[in-house]
Write a protein that binds this DNA or RNA. Sequence first.
DNA 1: CATCTATGTTGACATACATCGAACTAAATC
DNA 2: GATTTAGTTCGATGTATGTCAACATAGATG
Lengths: 121, 121
Amino acid sequence: MSNRRTLPELEPDVVVPCCPPLTERTLTAAEAERTAAMFKALSDPVRLRLFSAVASAPSGEACVCDISDVGVSGPTVSHHLKKLKEAGLLASERRGTWVYYRVEPSVLAGMGRLLTGAGPA
Amino acid sequence: MSNRRTLPELEPDVVVPCCPPLTERTLTAAEAERTAAMFKALSDPVRLRLFSAVASAPSGEACVCDISDVGVSGPTVSHHLKKLKEAGLLASERRGTWVYYRVEPSVLAGMGRLLTGAGPA
DNA sequence: CATCTATGTTGACATACATCGAACTAAATC
DNA sequence: GATTTAGTTCGATGTATGTCAACATAGATG
């Protein structure tokens, strides 16, 4: 559910092509703000474990019940997954009883490019 | 100031080859702790601008006086540079009046590999 | 040595954030 | 419709953190 009607085919779908590689030049304040937000989403150990659990899932997605064993309470897991979603790193979908999370495509490559200056493909 | 006596030659000196790519498997708690610390160092806008200023310096290094124009006070700049140093992302050296910062080699490639699974070289 | 400039350290303060328990919603099942 | 299971939202709380002013240190220079 989003603005998928009027716009013909201008859906970027990518969250990351926001900012130049860190090695290119000094980031502007706005660029730094956006880039820092993505790093911040991965700056918590619990969030990082949740993210890697989803990112490494063979099927490309994982339900919350499969990744909840990270040593914190249920509400805290939910809180962190929400943060990752807000940062544009994860997407979620409810199917019946369970809610499935998957990594937003191009996020990993995009952030990698931020660091290395030029990524794979 | 650390455990630098007993251990013979196990000094890694590299901060990054610590953890597997996020897509490989769910990180352990310890791996997540170390990895998150690096992302956290880049999770602040001011720190990110300082880092990119150093990382994009043509000579490979920059003195504090050249990168201090990030909208915060001197002490705050110092504070953030210290954090980046503690995280192993920057190194500093005093030469005469000025202090020069440079990016710790292999940091960018290492973090990139963390995200993309396989990096340049 | 006095002084000026370039950085760093300390202490204080306000805000952000991770965490949990309790209460809530959604779907399945009895 | 009552109950159970999966997940989220809310409110409270303790801790971490970004920020600055004041003070301290390091070199250079008069």
